[in-house]
Design a protein around this nucleic acid. Structure first.
Length: 472
RNA sequence: GGCCCCAUCGUCUAGUGGCCUAGGACGCUGGCCUUUCACGCCGGAAACACGGGUUCGAACCCCGUUGGGGUCGCCA
């Protein structure tokens, strides 16, 4: 049997972190089993569903590298089919019309609450003849759920979960306006789409029992369920925007790499021994629902950030160049020409060791493309003291005569210059002003690497610009 | 409140009765490396919620307590 999973978000906002993980787990499970991963947009709530949100889901999935099989399905497009199933349920007497008005129901609910009784629909119309229906009341259709016994679900994550049927009531299948409810639509779509494994958030666990009733009433094969624990905020409560419940879009603009995101989300609630850095290939090979934990986990931005730093440090130089280019484009700076790209590429090995995210990586590479006069930070200005400039002038003379230009040789030259001073000054007294003159900053890759990457001409131009400035 | 789920360092987790004086990672912290900042390397503090059982033996099994979470819509 081919495994078929699905991700079924409702387009009422962005694709948030929890949804992203649910999508990832579904994707991983399907890919692991060589099955199919489908995408269904649960847009039956017409008032709250927006095209922007649908696009945000598509974009988020694409960014995360979670490709789905076939076309994304709009749940709303299937209303006729849903109604058809409701009719079948009515015909087989597994469902009935209920003429209780929303007001009546609300009153009953509140009364029950006031008395501290558990509320559930009392089945008023379950066995009553529709001929007794009040005038002018549009009915809803409810399922005729079993009154006795237990419903048992062998959840792939949670294990056996059992609930007494008497605690469940006859839920609404078709609203009084004739539109199907989520509970019904999900079951019909999962069945029709051939979904074999329903992997979703823990918050749907109680829904599973009710959906089970519909599958049973239609005599349909019930899919396997895997209810994965929710992601909480750092405080253990529901994930709030302040704590990371952002759209994946926000993580992208925050400079996170999709591979870091995937790795982080995977390790949240799932583990494979002591492994921390897990490639997507390994994840596909190793993923299983059995090893998904049952407790909710807290979102930890620091760990995500650290993982992101790892993926940047170990990223391919050429792809990191592309990353910088797209950050620049997003900032409205236009792209980089080929010369600039190759300059960036040669600086990348040192640059990437110093960045936690794509934005920092971009910021720290800007000095490469700066034109004289550089923008100096206050600290950098302080480093360019009269004394320091004196050294730079002498060194510039030395550099001028060099015929080869490698970091090692440059370092050798400067070191022997320092040694010749016989302890009058140290390497730092030279290297720091040099860094300031070349980058405008006190923080940068090793200064001799900077010189090499910049090349002799540009290096001298920048030093001379500082010297010239000093003369005035 | 009813029903359901959960419980190992601050956080993510390893651990499925003896290999646990509980391992790894992030964070924190001491040090090394060093021209800056990083990276890297070495070290440290830090947890089995509590109480009862079962067992020769329990982080692992059972019961209870406490604590957390989910859910109780003609939302999804």
């Amino acid at each position: 049997m081919t495994v078929v999973t699905r991700f079924a978000p409702s387009p009422t906002g962005f694709l948030h972190i929890g949804g992203a993980r649910t999508a990832l787990f579904n994707w991983l499970y399907a890919r692991h089993h060589n099955g199919k991963f489908l995408l269904r947009i649960e847009d039956t709530d017409r008032a709250r569903s927006t095209q922007e949100a649908v696009d945000a889901i598509f974009d988020g999935m694409a960014w995360l590298g979670l490709d789905w099989d076939g076309e994304a399905l709009s749940q709303f497009s299937r209303v006729e089919r849903h109604k058809e199933v409701v009719q079948a349920l009515l015909d087989s007497e597994n469902a009935y019309y209920c003429y209780c008005s929303p007001e009546e129901l609300t009153a009953m609910r509140e009364a029950a609450k006031a008395e501290g009784r558990p509320w559930r629909y009392d089945g008023t119309w379950r066995d009553r003849d529709p001929s007794q229906a009040p005038e002018g009341v549009a009915p809803v259709v409810r399922i005729k759920a079993p009154l006795e016994g237990d419903t048992v679900i062998n959840d792939l994550v949670q294990g056996e979960v059992r609930v007494a049927n008497e605690t469940l009531d006859d839920m609404v299948l078709l609203r009084s306006d004739g539109t199907p409810t989520y509970m019904l639509a999900v079951v019909v779509d999962d069945h029709d789409m051939g979904v074999t494994h329903v992997i979703r958030g823990d918050d749907h666990l109680t829904n599973a029992f009710r959906q089970y009733q519909i599958f049973a009433a239609m005599n349909w094969h019930v899919p396997e369920f895997g209810h994965i624990p929710l992601i909480h905020g750092p405080d253990g409560a529901k994930l709030s925007k302040r704590h990371g419940a952002l759209g994946v879009e926000a993580y992208r603009t925050g400079g996170f790499l999709p591979e870091a995101m995937r790795n982080y989300l995977l390790r949240l609630g799932w583990g494979h021994g002591d492994d921390e850095i897990i490639s997507t290939e390994q994840a596909i090979e190793w993923f299983s629902l059995e090893s998904v934990g049952r407790a909710a986990s807290r979102f930890d931005m620091a760990k995500l950030t650290s993982l992101n730093g790892h993926y940047i440090r170990h990223g391919e130089d050429t792809s990191l160049v592309q990353t910088v280019v797209s950050v620049l484009r997003e900032r409205g700076h236009g792209g980089l020409d080929e010369t600039q790209k190759s300059l960036l590429l040669s600086a990348m090995p040192e640059l990437k060791k110093r960045a936690k995210n794509a934005n920092e990586l971009t910021d720290s590479s800007m000095f490469l493309f700066a034109a004289v006069p550089l923008d100096f930070t206050e600290k950098a200005k302080d480093l360019l003291s009269e004394d320091a400039v004196k050294h730079l002038r002498i060194l510039a003379g030395h550099f001028e005569g060099l015929t080869s230009w490698t970091a090692e040789q440059l370092e050798g030259h400067v070191r022997s210059y320092v040694e010749a001073s016989d302890g009058a000054f140290k390497l730092g007294a030279i290297a720091q002003p040099l860094r300031a003159a070349l980058t405008g900053s006190t923080v940068s890759p090793p200064v001799f690497d900077v010189m090499m990457v910049l090349g002799k001409e540009e290096t001298l131009a920048r030093i001379n610009d500082v010297l010239k400035d000093r003369l005035n």
